[in-house]
Design a protein around this nucleic acid. Structure first.
Lengths: 220, 220, 220, 220
DNA sequence: GATGAATGAGTTTTCATTCAT
DNA sequence: GATGAATGAAAACTCATTCAT
C-alpha cells in the first residue's frame, strides 16, 4: 500500500475525486463520519453543517441534496479503493499473493482512517441510497466483486479452498465488513492490519500440500 | 430444533414474550418485518399501522413509543433464540456437536421465517435503539456470546481451530449475520440451512487428526 | 362551621351533590385533586382513571365528557360553599361578624381538605370550562358575590372600610384565593385558619372609633 | 417609571433580552398575549404561527420547543421588571416611597401593555413550565421577593403595617396579581394605575401617627 | 359497570430544502 | 459562497371519546 497515497493524489489531480482539503472535501469527510457513527437517516444536514462550521442552508451550495452527499461519499470511496485494489493485484502473480491483496485491501478500505468511514457507509447505508444512486455505484461494485470471484475460482481449481467460491466470498464479505465494529488498528498494542490479514488467510486457505476437493455444495 | 415450537409456546404461556396471535403480537411481527426490510428509521408508524390495519395513533395503545417497539422486537427475539440455543447445547456433548449447534442456531435465528426478521433487526438497527434499550438487551447478549467463547476456547485447546477464539468469533459473527443479505433457505432448489451450517463448520474446524497449535496472534 | 358537615350530609341526602363515598364521588375528588395540582388541561382522563383504579374508557360510564367532570366539581363545590356561607351569615347580625363569616368561609372553601381542591379549581380553571358550563355556574357565583358586596357596602356606609367596596372585594378575592398557594392550615405549629381570618380582618377593617370617609376613588 | 424605556433599550442593546422588533421578539410578544388570554396549554404553536404570520414549523427555527417560548417570555419579563424595580427603589429614600414603588411596579408589571401579558403568564402558567425552566426563573424571583420583604420588615419596625410582613406580602401578592383579571387601566374614564396604587397603600399602611404594634401572629 | 381495542382529530416537532439579502 | 428566515410535508405522539364484548 506504499503508493496508495500516490493513487489518491493522482485521482484528485484528475478531478475524479474531491480534494479532501477543499471545503467540499472537508464536508464529505465529516459527513462520512457522521453517516458511519449515526447512520444516514439519523444524520441531519444540521449535524453536518455544525461539524463543518457552516449553516445548514449553505450545504446546498455544494450539493444538490443530502442524497447526493451520500452518493458522492460512496462513489469516491469505491473509486479509490478499486484503484488501490487494481494496483495491488497488478503487483501479485501468485494465487496466495492475490488473495492476500484482496483481503488486505478490503480490511484497509474498511478500517483505515482515510476510507474506513466511507466504506462502512457504503456497506451499511446501501438501502438509504436512492435508486439512481444505487445504479451508479453498482457498476463499480461489480468490477470489484469480479476480482474476488476470479481469485477464489482459481483457488478452488487448485484445491486451496474448501468451499464453493460464491459462498465463501459471501461469508468473507460479512466477516471482513464486520471488522469495522470491533477491529481497532490504531490501538497499540494490538492486532495490526497485516496480522489480521494473515489470520483471515489462515482461516480461508487450505494449507499447501493438503489440498482437498471442494465440497459438492454449490451456491444459491 | 425439533421442539423449538414448544420452547416458544412455553415462553408465551409464561408471559415472557408476547403471544404472536394477540393484536400486540401481530403488530410486533409486522413491525419486525418492516424494520428488517426498510430499516427502523425509514419505517414510519404509519407504515406499521397500515400493515396491521389500524390507524397510526392506535399503535400507542400498545406501545409507548416507536423505540419501545424496536426494543420489544429485539428483546423477545433474543430471549427465544437464547432459549433455543440453551436447549440445543444441552443435547450436545461433543465439541463438534456444540459448535454445530451454535452455528446452526445463529443461522436459524438470522434466517428463519420466524425470528429472522427480528434477529437482523437486532444486529442492524442496534444504533437506532435508545441507550436504555441497549442496556436492557446487552445483558442477554452477554450470555449468548459466552456460549460461543466457551466452545471456541475448548476447540482451541483441542487444536481444532486455527485462530484465536476471540478473533474467530468476531469473524464468524460477521459472516453469519451477513447471511441475511444473501441466503434464501426457502428458495428451492438451493442451499439448505443444514448444508450452510456444514459449510461454515468446514471453514472453521481443522479436520480431526490434523490439529495444529493456534497461531500466536491474540485478540485486540 | 360546626354544622358544616350536617349541611353537606343534607345536600347529599337530597341528591343535590354526589356522595363522596360513591364511585362517582371518589372520581370527582380525585379529579379535583389532579385538576388543582396539574391543571385541567394537563390532566388526562388516563390520569384520572389511574388514580381511581379504572381504565380511561370506563370514566365515560359516569360522565359524558371530561368537561362534565370539571363542571360537576365546580358546581357541587360552589353549592356546598354557598350553603355554608348562607348558614354562617344567618347566624351573624353584626357587620363585623358578617365580614368575619365571609372571610372565614372563603378561606375555608379555598383551603379545607374537603373543598379546597375544588374551590381552587373553580377559580383557576375557569377558562377551561365550556361556555355552557360557565353559564350554569355563573348564576351561583352571582349570589355568592352579592353577599360580599352587600356587606362591604354596609361597611362603607359605616366608615369601617377605607376603600371602595368593589375595588376592595377584588383585592380581597385575589388575596384570599392566593392563600391556596402558600397557606397550610394542617401544618402544626403554624397559622390556623381562624388566625388568618383575623389577620385579614385587621387589614380590611378600620378600627372602630376611627372611621373615616371612604376615598372618592370609585371602581372600574 | 419615566426612564423605563431607557432601561429596556439598554437591556436589548446588551443582548440580555430579545429585540421586540426582531422576528423572534415579535413571536415572543404574540405568544405572551396568547398565553395570557388562552392559557399556555390551550395555545397551540399553530395559533402562535398564525398570529405571527409564519407556518407552525418555522417557530422551531427560533425556539427549540414550546416550553422554551414560555420560559423566554417569563425570563425576559422578570428581568425587565426587576430592572425597573431596582431603578425605582434607587430613587426613593422614604419608607412610604419605597412601598409605593413596589406596589406601583408590580401593578405596572401585571397590567401594562408592555409587560402585563408576560407577567400574568409568569404568575398563572408557572405550573406549565418545565422543572429546568422553573429553576432558572426562581433565582430572579428570589431577588424580587427580597425587596418586598425588606421594605415590609422596615415598615413593621416603624409600626406602619398591622400584619406580619410575610403574611402581608402573600396577601398582597395575591391581590396585586389578581388585578390582571379585572383592572383595565386603558379604559377611560376609570381607575388609573396611580390611583389603584394609592388605594392599595391606603389598605396596607397604618396612617402616620397611629402606629400600632404588629399582631403577635407570625407566618407559617 | 368494566375492559381492551380502536378511532380521529389534534398536537408538537423534525428536517430537507429554498431563497432573498 | 454564506446567512437567516422561512417553507411544507411528514414525522411521532396525545388524548378524549366510542363501542363490542
Amino acid at each position: 500500500m506504499e503508493s496508495s497515497n500516490d493513487i489518491k493524489r493522482q485521482l484528485i489531480r484528475d478531478g475524479v475525486i474531491t480534494d479532501p482539503d477543499s471545503p467540499k472535501g472537508v464536508l464529505l469527510n465529516k459527513a462520512a463520519h457522521l453517516f458511519r457513527t449515526q447512520g444516514y437517516e439519523r444524520t441531519t444536514v444540521r449535524d453536518i453543517g455544525r461539524e463543518v462550521g457552516i449553516l445548514p442552508g449553505s450545504i446546498f451550495h455544494h450539493f444538490r441534496s443530502k442524497d447526493e452527499i451520500l452518493r458522492t461519499v460512496m462513489r469516491e470511496n469505491i473509486i479509490v479503493s478499486l484503484a488501490r485494489l487494481r494496483m495491488a493485484l497488478n503487483q501479485e502473480e501468485s494465487l496466495e499473493g492475490r488473495l492476500r491483496a484482496l483481503v488486505r485491501c478490503e480490511l484497509f478500505a474498511t478500517n483505515s482512517e482515510e476510507t474506513g468511514e466511507a466504506w462502512t457507509v457504503l456497506v451499511q447505508e446501501w438501502r438509504s441510497l436512492s435508486p439512481e444512486g444505487q445504479q451508479e455505484i453498482l457498476v463499480l461494485r461489480e468490477e470489484y466483486e469480479n476480482y474476488w470471484l476470479d481469485a477464489l475460482e482459481t483457488a478452488r481449481q487448485q484445491g486451496r479452498i474448501a468451499l464453493d467460491p460464491f459462498i465463501l466470498r459471501r461469508l468473507l464479505a460479512g466477516a471482513l465488513n464486520w471488522t469495522s465494529h470491533w477491529f481497532r488498528p490504531d490501538r497499540k498494542p494490538g492486532l495490526t492490519l497485516d496480522e489480521l490479514t494473515e489470520e483471515v488467510l489462515r482461516l480461508v486457505l487450505v494449507p499447501c500440500g493438503e489440498q482437498q476437493p471442494v465440497s459438492e455444495t454449490t451456491a444459491v
